[in-house]
């Protein structure tokens, strides 16, 4: 219930109406959105019980490893009610045709399998918020100072997921496992998304804000 309370408000892409439609506009919109959503994610992480008790260095390491998984999981959850569309933001819903015209097809095709996977599981909001916190705590950063403290954070979030499933899904005793078994696909998808944006950064045609660049650099 605490994770539900700290869940951030809806986010809006607000594409620049003065820019001509196309590849540059679509990516400029997404990079600006990602930068603003990262600020929100950092604020959200601080409210996860136990996260702020970690050292500042470990908080940074977890976020630097997991930020794209969290961004992707947010997009995926927003898209669960749609058919083959991705809800990047409340006002930025992209179908395959739009994705093709705006140079977002690779990203679109990379994220959709994850949407299908969670649709099949009928993932609920309670499960989504818990899984998202688990993804952050389970980011496999190689730079963790206090491994025991991070393990305690993982354990408490894992326990929250088990409690949730114990209370709501007595008909499927394997549901916790099924949800956790989606995390490899989430990591794979986030890796593709990082690669996508990293190559855009290298091409240098799309403006990127500093935080987004900083987080991309941490993944380089």
């Amino acid at each position: 219930s605490h994770l539900l309370v700290i869940e951030p408000e809806k986010i809006y892409a607000m594409p620049d109406p003065t820019m001509p439609d196309g590849y540059i506009k679509a990516l400029t919109t997404l990079c600006d959105l990602a930068d603003r959503e990262l600020v929100v994610i950092i604020g959200w992480a601080k409210h996860i019980p136990g996260f702020s008790s970690l050292s500042l260095a470990d908080q940074m390491s977890l976020l630097q490893s997991a930020w794209m998984e969290i961004l992707v999981l947010n997009i995926v959850f927003r898209s669960l009610a749609c058919e083959e569309e991705l809800v990047y933001a409340e006002d930025y819903v992209v179908d395959e045709e739009h994705a093709r015209l705006s140079g977002l097809l690779d990203l679109h095709v990379a994220i959709l399998p994850l949407v299908r996977r969670y649709k099949k599981l009928s993932m609920e909001k309670e499960e989504f918020v818990t899984l998202k916190a688990i993804a952050l705590s389970n980011s496999d950063s190689t730079h963790i100072e206090n491994v025991e403290a991070v393990q305690r954070l993982q354990d408490s979030l894992h326990e929250a997921l088990q409690d949730l499933e114990g209370a709501h899904n007595t008909e499927d005793p394997r549901r916790t496992g099924k949800l956790l078994m989606t995390l490899p696909l989430l990591r794979q998808t986030a890796a593709k998304a990082v690669q996508h944006f990293y190559s855009i950064k290298v091409q240098g045609k799309v403006p990127m804000h500093k935080l987004f660049l900083e987080m991309l650099e941490a993944k380089a």
Binding site: V39, L56, M60, Q64, E214, E217
Partner: peptide, 15 residues
């Protein structure tokens, strides 16, 4: 750490 100064600053902010 100097390279990640915005993340560092946002984590230190109390809000």
């Amino acid at each position: 750490k100097e390279k990640h100064k915005i993340l560092h600053r946002l984590l230190q902010n109390s809000t």
